[in-house]
């Protein structure tokens, strides 16, 4: 396998990591809902018992999205492994690989 192929596989694995999906979706949701929250008027506030719920939930979702992406950045997915080989590893080495 050439370097370029490996790079491609790594990119695909990162794109297909569930943290990318959650992070991306919540980033977008967070932005939309926070923006709405900034412009909420009297009617919206009355309905929500005076809580700026859109603003708070928007910021919350934004934080979750960023956290997921940060986690992905700090701990990127390893190369695809052969699960049968994995089972043969002693527990210590497996633990080392996981962390």
């Amino acid at each position: 396998m050439t370097d370029k192929d490996e790079e491609k596989v790594a990119t695909a694995a990162r794109l297909f990591d569930v943290r990318t999906v959650i992070g991306g979706l919540f980033l977008i949701y967070g932005l939309i809902v926070t923006l709405i929250g900034l412009f909420d008027g009297e009617t919206e506030l009355d309905k929500a018992e005076g809580v700026r719920i859109n603003l708070w939930m928007g910021l919350g979702m934004l934080a979750l999205g960023l956290l997921m992406l940060l986690w992905l950045k700090l701990n990127p997915p390893g190369p695809p492994r052969d699960p049968d080989v994995e089972d043969e590893l002693p527990p210590d080495e497996r633990a080392a690989r996981e962390s």
């Binding site: 939309i32 709405i36 929250g37 909420d40 309905k47 929500a48 018992e49 719920i53 979702m61």
Partner: peptide
């Protein structure tokens, strides 16, 4: 219906 304003309602 009673409590959620548009935005979180969509979520």
């Amino acid at each position: 219906r009673d409590l959620l304003p548009n935005g979180v309602l969509g979520v």
